[in-house]
Design a protein around this nucleic acid. Structure first.
Length: 494
RNA sequence: GAUCCACUAGCUCAGCCGGUAGAGCAUCUGACUUUUAAUCAGGGGGCCUGGGGUUCGAAUCCCCAGUGGAUCACCA
């Protein structure tokens, strides 16, 4: 349905369109206005009422409510800060202006000038002395009381969702504040914010299937990045020492309440740090965000009470599995022993060639992961699933200095002491390549240029990645990642 | 990719065992000079997501498709 065709419009739209045509015929088209001066915003007027009482202000926004009483009427004007009531009186505005005001439709954009006062029921209001139509709303708004519920429409037409559901606007304001806070915190620690390529010739730094695109001039297939990791570490080699990037990653995988094909990651690298440094930063970022966004460390996520007060618990993967299954991978040291014990315990899909570390990880994911409700650093991951991570001393090369942080049974971040041995890195890539050739589409492909950079020498470095969308979900108590993405990926309607 | 659920007026939702399509808000007409989801009286508004089928008759039962949601799988 468009306004360009001759087709019959629903009556509410026809009424609105007729009003616009009349204004245009009278030379009063609102679309001719090019600017609008505003002195105050709705929320400021309510907050500073004592100072502003009886002063003249000018506000602008969308008309969200009308309560007509004959020769007097009330309206609610919504701007980016909130709603303010407009009080209009025929005696003040005059016959013509008051009549035109009454003709306005919900959704119209208007500017209003007048004095600030309090009505006799106590509502801070503006006494309408002069007003201007800034834009006509040609379509009826969703209902004022129930708002817009239909998730399909909410995600596809987010502007409507933002207009009529104040809590949605609040969520996205908080998202912005969380990212702002992270930047402030890292900038304060001497980090440099950088940008690295989204178009990659090798999609590295994570285990995931990439999106493929094509560069015409170079006649070259390119991949949308699945992680900025290998570029950021090149910057550490280059001597920038502390770098971070907040940006989009793309992974060609299934969608769920926790997965969107494009999502926002924070990745940071600190030369001369290690995974302990990264734990401190993680704790600091998350707890400070909770304080600032939620007003304290104690939060509720979808009915589960969670304390984000530092320090967070630290437990090794082996200990976590032992705690929840009784299986002790410190004793089950051969691949075969591990497989047999896990199978006997009930773990399904234990492949005949599955190495020790993968069995350990599978046990963790199956039996322990969803038990980690309070924030927990799960540390010391097996080498088989950590191809970019430095080996932990005293583990005979089986474990690495890596952690993931779990809250409410979900992963929020991943960090390690970065592998800086070029020979070892080359071996690990070769191992990954063998897996890729064996059919594992998510195994990482070798990036020889990255290994070459390591040959110039990369200092011992700590690296960290945090899923920003999930963090925002946690701190704004949203059940789905789509509720913290302004425009989540949707199938087209046609 | 699999399974289950949903789709009815601009919005939020009823609609039972198959028998002429309903409510609230919004909208239109009228009344009303301090309302708060204003109130009162009256009116209009429907491709029941789309396509097949069963039936004298389908919003309702069956099949297929579309979109969304949840769970699972993959994954962060």
């Amino acid at each position: 349905m468009t306004f360009d065709t001759q087709e019959v419009l629903p009556e509410q739209m026809q009424f609105r369109l007729d009003k616009l045509r009349t204004l245009e015929e009278e030379g009063k088209s609102p679309y001719l206005l090019t600017s609008c001066r505003v002195t105050h915003h709705a929320e400021d007027i309510v907050q500073d009422f004592d100072k502003l009482e009886e002063t003249e202000v000018r506000v602008a926004g969308r008309l969200m409510g009308k309560r007509g009483m004959g020769k007097v009427s009330f309206a609610d004007l919504l701007d980016r800060t909130g709603t303010i009531q407009i009080f209009s009186r025929k005696d003040n505005l005059g016959e013509e202006s008051y009549g035109a005001w009454q003709e306005l439709d919900l959704g119209d954009l208007v500017a209003v000038s007048g004095q600030v006062f309090r009505t006799k029921t106590g509502e801070v209001s503006i006494r309408n002395a002069e007003w201007t139509l800034l834009a006509k709303s040609l379509r009826p708004l969703p209902e004022k009381f129930h708002g817009l519920r239909d998730t399909d429409v909410r995600y596809r037409k987010r502007y409507l969702d933002l207009m009529v559901n104040p809590e949605v606007r609040d969520t996205f304001i908080k998202r912005s504040r969380i990212i702002q806070l992270i930047r402030r915190e890292l900038d304060g620690r001497g980090y440099l914010e950088v940008e690295t390529p989204l178009l990659n010739t090798i999609a590295g730094g994570a285990a995931a299937r990439p999106f493929v695109t094509h560069h015409n001039a170079l006649d070259l297939d390119l991949f949308l990045r699945i992680s900025p990791e290998l570029y950021l570490k090149r910057l550490i080699v280059g001597g920038l020492e502390r770098v971070y990037e907040i940006g989009r990653n793309f992974r060609n995988e299934g969608m769920s309440t926790r997965h969107n094909p494009e999502f926002t990651m924070l990745e940071l690298y600190e030369a001369f740090g290690d995974y302990h440094t990264m734990m401190d930063i993680t704790e600091s970022l998350i707890s400070k965000a909770a304080e600032e966004i939620c007003g304290g460390y104690e939060i509720d996520y979808q009915g589960t009470p969670i304390s984000l007060a530092p320090p967070f618990r630290r437990i090794s993967m082996i200990d976590a599995v032992r705690e929840h299954t009784g299986l002790d991978f410190a004793v089950l040291t051969s691949d075969e022993e591990a497989r047999e014990a896990a199978s006997a315990y009930g773990l399904e899909d234990v492949g005949p060639a599955m190495p020790w570390g993968e069995v350990l990880n599978a046990c963790f994911e199956e039996y322990a992961e969803d038990k980690l409700i309070q924030p927990t650093f799960l540390i010391d991951y097996p080498i088989e699933i950590s191809p970019l991570t430095k080996i932990k001393e005293g583990t005979k090369g089986r474990l690495t200095e890596r952690f993931e942080i779990f809250i409410g049974g979900r992963e929020y971040g991943n960090a390690y002491s970065e592998l800086n041995d070029p020979f070892d890195q080359r071996r690990r890539f070769a191992d990954q390549q063998r897996r890729h050739e064996a059919g594992d589409e998510e195994a990482q492909l070798p990036d020889e240029d990255f290994v070459e950079s390591l040959e110039y020498g990369m200092p011992p470095t700590g690296g960290l990645g945090i899923g920003i969308d999930r963090l925002v979900m946690l701190l704004t108590n949203q059940p789905s990642i789509r509720d913290v993405l302004l425009f989540p990926t949707m199938k087209p309607l046609d």
